[in-house]
Write a protein that binds this DNA or RNA. Structure first.
Length: 1158
RNA sequence: AGUCCUGUAGCUCAGCUGGUUAGAGCGCUACACUGAUAAUGUAGAGGUCCGCAGUUCAAAUCUGCGCAGGACUACCA
């Protein structure tokens, strides 16, 4: 409830969700966001990029976190005087959208083009992808994230795609885009390649039992392999293990670890019992040979496969095997494109399992392909796209390589064909074949995890598929060098996870065989010898025109599009998605038709291209970018490039963070962002990842409804650094609400209450007054007390610290400093100590200084907290100053107002106060009972000076009459001595332990001597060492005869003797307290005057107290009763409003209290 | 499997370049306070600083090896 008649609105209760709601409406009504941009329109830009979310899914609580972090720094930079444009964006392409649409329409990929046309399918995608934009926009608004939602960039817009095409062509022209093939996970049953995303679906990896075989590859004797044949026993074989025997016909190489140790072993074949010599890694011996039959007699071998004798007859390094040739194991076909059947070296070879020799089939393994390419080894692909052996593999032609690809019935039919009861897989039959031919060493079932297609539930094959690649490896050095100029928060993500990723860079596989995405703008002739990459719509139209002219195409499907017309209307006439582009056939210079490569590009390229594509660069807005190539990367900034700051989840490290970096490096030779904050995950309260499945996901809207955006944001930011995982616990939000916001709210309400009563008018200007804003004529430091100067000093310290930490992307440190200041310094200390100044007496210099000081503190706190808690602080700031905090200039701290000495001595006052209060507690004297004397022993002059300064403060706070400083030399004191380990340790080194013991054993006389002389010689372990006064801390320990408390170096003693006079005063205070409570309970206003009478009921002490302190009681309680009429003895003479109150356990009296009619 | 992060009181977190009583808030218990009061103060209980080893006069802090949780990348003969 606000009261409009008052200058400063007062509120009954703190309702953060309501405040947020009202402020949001106000922002929308006033377009505060727009104003904040307008205000800074000529200011230097602070460039921020919004990572596009996919509106295909609903936002979760982690998005609140992510968006809050982005908002904080954008707001901070705006307050600091920058123009911060914030364009929203939507990631609209990609597999999750396709899958969602398929689920919705009840179709599968196979149905596309059959049951449903590609046009219809794409239209459905376009619709589906923006389904939740309203929900997203609503959340974005409600958490207070200021973002231009009106003109977002959308990755499916024609302009966006055109910019992407431009980038692709740029890469193409610089030979950074090429066609090759990679081994990719492929589902023969579904007939499609699988993304790693699909492979990482839960339940994809399943334990399966496969037939594994150790095959024997027969070494060919030549000069390279000569050393293997020395004293050979039978033929010489290299042992290699495989869990996929069906790949053995496609074997073209064997890979060994160049640095590993290998041995040659003389033994018998366990199946044919023929003599043989085998080669394997030394550390794998135990897996295949029994220790007990080592060096057993070869003559006595029983040919039963048990206890086969064996003997090591040679040892050598892997690199010695490189180049050794062997006979093809299963000679069904001849490899193409390179050498084959040779031993090569590869770093990836381990000796954890297998034989230390890797059977290498370049068509069916990513490692295999890579190592084969390095050594120019050809490949064999003897399996077709449906997962069946090709005809060349005569024994198994047409058979599925995995038994799982057959249905039950088919398997039974196959078994019949094989003439067996049970179907034997090709793996099993290849193993049998190897056994009979003497080419197997060990065949067994092996259980391991193998990926399955999430859709068909059948095992995946790794299969060579055509792909387009970005040759990022060509720019690896620049990628690494530029990364070193980026500020990563936290740093370890940049150097570690991201840095290592760059060090092990692979070319970027851009191809996706899908429907809903940006088409690759490359057209090729059937033979692939002529090729064209399109970089703009204009160029495309020109090529179409040529094609039409050559009679290849009938007409221009984009005829309505006018090149060079940049209007949205013009661009809306064109759709560059499939299938439209697929229908375009261009003509090559030699006159052959060229069709588009059917691939789409990786959606990561879409989002990585956003710095340019969001502005339709370079077709429009080229002025936003660094002006010339010479200036690129030379520190010259464009208006919109690169970003000063981006932030997303740490899971984007190899996603968006990488694609931005890669594209900027390759096309601009520049970083895309100067600072990146990678925020952690939001987990549930027990540290589990949130998921719908576990039902522990937190609904962001409910959370915002319940607590308000400010509390949620403050909780998230103050609780843990953005990059640490956050264990989200709603109790934590309640705590933030109670502590920080309520303290701030109460402090403001307190200020408003008295400021309104006294008609306080802040002399406020919008131009950002430094220091204290004051009333006309009462300027500057007039009337400022020690505690005013103290809180202003603390305030300026916090301003300095908060500014430095916001600037350094450390919002958590800033938030905690602000919160501590508000809760501890401002609310619990300053306001509590200075309450009287606000409500006692008329407006004067002292009172004005108090108002000024508190007003300034509140106003600055609103500004400092505004980036994190934008709603509540805006309300607070408007209440204080009449304008929006988001249009304010960041307050600059004033170094001259920071007085560390003052801060330290106030800390001392707080410490001493706490000690005295603890003595009161121990002795059972409540604070209202005045005590006579407190004694504080002092050991140095600094402390003495400080004590003098804070004397009054401490005395009034603990309600004691006098403070006595005890000199160190006073004999009553016993002292304690403690070595300063840091100082002494450095000098004493190994002697430290003994020196410390010696010092701690000092008696009072020795301590006194050290204090008097300033130094002392000690003899320790036969060494003479010098001990200086500064090497130790001396503190007073106890004052005999008084009640004492101490903490660290501080000690206080309190004289607890109660005199008659002290007791009287205590009672007077109790009375005042009771009367004040009564005033309040009676519903009187703070300023109401009263008629007061006290019936002591014969209590002598009470009567005496009232007589002695009548003036005090009258003044404190705003009573109009003449002092001598205050005490009413004996009877109750018909007074109305009589209240009995208890002063302590034994004493009670009656009070009558009536509002005075004035 | 690799890379990175985290591990301090029942809970959430501080503890800077190593320095001797390891802190705060919440929660719990007791007492007090009461013109800010769904606030506040004081006191108490509560710790193998994840474990082991090392460096050092001195390790929560530095090094190594593990363990647990998490993220990402890869998936293997």
């Amino acid at each position: 409830m606000s009261n409009d008649s008052k200058r400063f609105p007062q509120y009954d209760e703190l309702d953060l969700p309501k405040v947020a709601d009202e402020v949001l409406k106000q922002w929308e009504a006033e377009d505060t966001f727009g104003q904040s941009l307008e205000l800074r329109k000529d200011a230097p830009p602070f460039v921020f990029y919004e990572g596009p979310p996919s509106a295909n899914g609903l936002p979760g609580i982690h998005h609140v976190m992510a968006r809050a972090i982005k908002d904080i720094f954008c707001r901070y930079q705006t307050q600091k005087g920058h123009r911060v444009d914030r364009k929203a964006g939507w990631d609209t392409h990609g597999l999750p959208i396709e899958l969602g649409v398929e689920k919705e329409l009840g179709i599968t990929k196979e149905d596309i083009g059959k049951k449903i046309s590609i046009e219809e399918y794409n239209a459905a995608c376009k619709k589906a992808v923006m389904r939740y934009t309203d929900v997203w926009n609503d959340m974005t608004r409600r958490i207070g994230f200021w973002l231009d939602l009106e003109k977002p960039y959308v990755t499916y817009h024609t302009k966006y795609i055109e910019s992407v095409w431009h980038l692709l062509k740029k890469l193409y022209d610089e030979d950074l885009l090429y066609k090759g093939y990679t081994i990719q996970p492929y589902s023969p049953a579904a007939g499609t390649g699988l993304s790693s995303h699909e492979l990482n679906q839960p339940g994809t990896y399943k334990p399966v039992k496969d037939t594994s075989a150790v095959a024997l590859f027969k070494v060919k004797p030549d000069h390279t392999s000569e050393f293997l044949f020395k004293d050979a026993f039978g033929d010489v074989f290299i042992m290699a293990w495989t869990t996929t025997p069906w790949t053995l016909p496609s074997n073209t190489a064997l890979t060994v670890g160049p640095k590993l140790d290998y041995v040659r072993v003389k033994t018998f074949n366990p199946y044919t019992h023929e003599p043989q010599t085998v080669v394997l890694a030394k550390s794998r011996l135990s897996a295949y040979f029994k220790e007990e039959s080592k060096d057993a007699s070869f003559d006595e071998y029983k040919k039963d496969g048990k206890l086969i004798p064996w003997q090591i007859i040679g040892e050598f390094y892997g690199h010695q095997l490189e180049g050794v040739r062997y006979e093809q194991l299963l000679p069904y076909a001849t490899p193409e494109g390179g050498d084959a059947f040779k031993v090569i070296g590869g770093d990836f070879v381990t000796t954890e399992d297998g034989t230390g020799v890797v059977h290498t089939a370049p068509s069916f393994g990513a490692d295999d392909q890579r190592v084969a390419r390095q050594h120019n080894i050809g490949s064999l692909t003897l399996v077709d796209l449906r997962g069946r052996f090709k005809p060349e593999v005569t024994d198994f032609a047409g058979e599925y390589v995995k038994a799982e690809y057959y249905t039950e019935e088919e398997r039974a039919a196959e078994a019949k064909k094989q003439g067996r009861d049970k179907y034997l897989s090709v793996d099993e039959r290849i193993a049998i074949k190897l056994k009979t031919e003497g080419r197997a060493f060990k065949v067994e079932k092996y259980e391991h995890n193998y990926p399955h297609c999430w859709r068909t539930d059948k095992p995946v094959l790794y299969y060579p598929l055509d792909s387009w690649f970005v040759r990022v490896t060509a720019k690896k050095d620049r990628l690494i060098a530029l990364n070193k100029t980026i500020t990563w928060k936290p740093e370890s993500t940049g150097t570690g996870r991201f840095g290592n990723w760059l060090e092990n860079l692979q070319d970027w596989n851009l191809s996706r065989s899908r429907y809903w995405g940006i088409p690759l703008p490359i057209w090729r002739t059937a033979g692939g010898d002529e090729e064209l990459c399109i970089g703009s719509l204009k160029q495309l139209k020109e090529e179409i025109a040529k094609s039409v002219k050559a009679g290849v195409m009938a007409g221009d499907p984009y005829a309505s599009f006018k090149a060079d017309d940049m209007s949205d209307g013009n661009y809306d006439t064109v759709d560059l998605h499939r299938p439209y582009v697929d229908n375009i056939v261009l003509v090559s210079p030699s006159g052959k038709p060229m069709t588009r490569e059917t691939d789409l590009i990786d959606v990561w390229f879409d989002s990585g291209a956003m710095p340019y594509a969001q502005w339709h660069y370079p077709f429009e807005n080229a002025q936003y970018f660094p002006p010339s190539p010479q200036e690129k990367g030379s520190g010259v900034e464009g208006e919109k490039f690169p970003a000063a700051f981006i932030a997303e989840g740490v899971d984007q490290t190899r996603g968006w963070f990488y694609t931005l970096h890669a594209i900027a490096t390759l096309t601009q030779d520049s970083v895309a962002y100067r600072t990146v904050v990678s925020n952690g995950l939001v987990l549930d309260k027990v540290g589990q990842k949130m998921s719908k499945r576990l039902g522990n996901a937190v609904d962001p809207f409910k959370t915002l409804d319940q607590y308000g955006a400010d509390a949620v944001r403050w909780y998230m930011i103050s609780n843990a650094s953005p990059w640490d995982n956050l264990k989200f616990d709603a109790d934590g939000i309640t705590e933030v609400q109670r502590k920080f916001f309520r303290a701030l709210f109460n402090t403001y309400n307190f200020f408003a209450l008295y400021a309104n009563i006294d008609g306080y008018v802040p002399a406020h200007t919008l131009s950002g007054v430094e220091g204290v804003s004051g009333v006309e004529g009462v300027s500057g430091t007039d009337g400022r007390t020690e505690s005013d100067r103290w809180i202003l000093s603390r305030l300026n310290s916090v301003m300095k610290l908060a500014d430095a930490n916001y600037a350094d992307y450390e919002p958590t440190i800033a938030a905690r400093a602000i919160q501590d200041f508000v809760v501890e310094d401002l609310s619990n200390w300053y306001v509590r100590l200075n309450r009287r100044r606000f409500w006692k007496g008329e407006m004067g210099a002292d009172k004005n200084a108090a108002f000024q000081t508190l007003h300034r503190c509140l106003e600055v706190i609103a500004m400092l907290s505004a980036p994190i808690a934008p709603f509540f602080t805006d309300r607070l700031y408007r209440d204080l100053t009449g304008s929006s905090v988001h249009l304010s200039d960041w307050p600059k701290h004033d170094e001259t107002l920071i007085d560390t000495e003052l801060e330290q001595r106030t800390a001392l006052a707080q410490k001493l106060t706490s000690l005295v209060l603890s003595i009161r507690k121990k002795e059972g004297h409540r604070v209202r009972q005045p005590l006579q004397k407190v004694l504080v022993p002092v050991t140095d002059n600094t402390m003495r000076t400080r004590l003098d300064a804070i004397r009054d403060l401490v005395l009034s706070e603990v309600n004691v009459k006098e403070l006595v400083i005890l000199d160190a030399s006073e004999s009553k004191l016993t002292k304690k001595i403690k070595p300063d380990f840091k100082k002494l340790g450095a000098r004493m080194g190994k002697l430290m332990k003994s020196v410390a013991a010696a010092v701690q054993a000092f008696d009072q006389a020795q301590i006194a001597e050290l204090e008097a002389q300033g130094s002392m010689k000690l003899s320790v372990e036969g060494h003479e060492v010098e001990l200086l006064r500064d090497d130790v801390e001396i503190s007073a320990e106890a004052v005999p005869g008084l009640s004492v408390a101490s903490d660290g170096p501080y000690t206080v003693a309190v004289d607890i003797t109660l005199t008659d006079e002290l007791i009287s005063e205590g009672i007077a205070r109790e009375l005042v307290s009771r009367i004040q409570t009564l005033r309040k309970e009676s519903g009187f206003e703070v300023t109401d005057r009263v008629q007061l009478h006290i019936h002591a009921e014969g209590e002598q002490q009470v009567e005496q107290a009232v007589r002695r302190h009548a003036a005090y009681i009258v003044a404190e309680t705003l009573a109009l009763t003449p002092e001598d009429q205050l005490l009413v003895t004996g009877t109750t003479n018909g007074d109305n409003g009589l209240h009995e109150v208890e002063l302590d356990e034994r004493t009670r009296c009656l009070l009558s209290l009536v509002k005075a009619g004035n």
